[in-house]
């Protein structure tokens, strides 16, 4: 027995022998640092909302809320100004829907393939490549949309009415490509986490691979899959560079994806880098649109949380 062990044994029974033998201040310091790290993101979110509120309040002192929400004409920086935000909202909606039409089927298809069909080696190569796609700067995607996809569409458009130089279709399509890795990677993680025993049970009942994927793995992984799609939607709504470059800067109340249109984010970017004097109504519109954007994403997140609670299949 070592002398240390002997000393410890001898101490047993003396008063206070169970007291802490070493100071543990490092434990406390580490904890404080970790809490601080966690708080940064929470405080930033709160800070953004707080910073948005005063200019927005001032804005709605001058502009009628009803006009803002239902107005169809957006020209806040011209004389006379109009503050109907609908054209920006519909533009965001159109581009986002196009992006999702591209990204959800392809992203979930890739996830099902990687999780249920691909062998170890294929998955090991594919996933990193997919994640590199997520690291391409969005400005590159924007120029890809404007300089490659739009000319391609204009050249090979089957109808008489080819897309405009700036159009929502190219922007939405490329944005969809951009968010595929986000959706695929997160959805794959959540499908891979479904226990093997469930798959075995399904195979043992005579399921095909497709049936195992769609009827057992997919529903069991639903909450992660929805989270992946929601994150994709949030990225699409918040994406700025692609739409600013490829969809144009003209507020346009239309659902025709072949026309140019300005999204909420594209407006904020364009107005934000302009020379609007602080405190002017034009300057405050940026905050109003920003808060609306924030509210839309928030509502969407809340809806998806409820959907997930209702439909997911909880294992274990």
């Amino acid at each position: 027995m070592t002398s240390r062990t002997l000393r410890r044994r001898a101490a047993a029974g003396t008063p206070g022998f169970l007291k802490r033998s070493q100071p543990r201040w490092t434990e406390r310091v580490v904890k404080v640092l970790l809490v601080a790290a966690a708080l940064v993101s929470v405080l930033t979110t709160v800070g953004i909302v707080v910073a948005l509120i005063p200019p927005v309040v001032e804005f709605f002192g001058k502009v009628d809320l009803g006009e803002f929400i239902t107005g169809t004409d957006w020209s806040p920086l011209f004389e006379p100004p109009h503050f109907g935000v609908l054209p920006l909202v519909t533009a965001t909606l159109v581009v986002t829907v196009i992006a999702l039409l591209v990204a959800v089927p392809l992203g979930l298809g890739a996830a099902v393939y990687l999780s249920e069909y691909a062998g170890h080696r294929v998955r090991g190569t594919f996933k990193p490549v997919l994640e590199v796609l997520a690291g391409i700067p969005t400005v590159v995607y924007g120029f890809f949309a404007l300089k490659a996809i739009t000319p391609f569409l204009q050249r090979f458009w089957p109808g008489d009415d080819p897309p405009e130089v700036f159009n929502a279709l190219s922007a939405g399509f490329v944005m969809g490509i951009m968010i595929i890795p986000t959706i695929a990677s997160l959805a794959e993680d959540s499908m891979a986490a479904v226990p093997r025993s469930l798959r075995d049970g399904a195979y043992a009942l005579g399921s095909s691979r497709m049936q195992v994927s769609t009827r057992v793995v997919f529903p069991a992984a639903l909450s992660g899959i929805v989270a992946a799609v929601v994150l994709g939607v949030s990225r699409a709504i918040g994406e700025t560079m692609i739409v600013a470059i490829a969809a144009g800067g003209r507020p346009n109340l239309t659902f025709d994806p072949l026309e140019g249109m300005q999204t909420m984010t594209a407006f904020i970017a364009a107005a934000g880098i302009g020379d609007l004097p602080t405190g002017s109504t034009g300057y405050q519109t940026i905050f109003a649109v920003g808060l609306l954007l924030f509210a839309i994403t928030l509502v969407m997140n809340l809806i998806s949380i409820r959907l997930v609670r209702r439909y997911r299949e909880v294992y274990e």
């Binding site: 025993s197 469930l198 049970g201 399904a202 009942l205 005579g206 095909s208 009827r215 057992v216």
Partner: peptide, 29 residues
């Protein structure tokens, strides 16, 4: 596997209703 079924070491019901667990095999078949 439709003719030769299997029961595993740890119970592994699907995270579905009791009804859907029974109906699963017939449905996929």
């Amino acid at each position: 596997r439709r003719r030769i079924g299997m029961v595993f070491q740890k119970p592994n019901p699907f995270p579905k209703s009791i009804y859907d667990n029974i109906a699963y095999g017939p449905r996929v078949g």
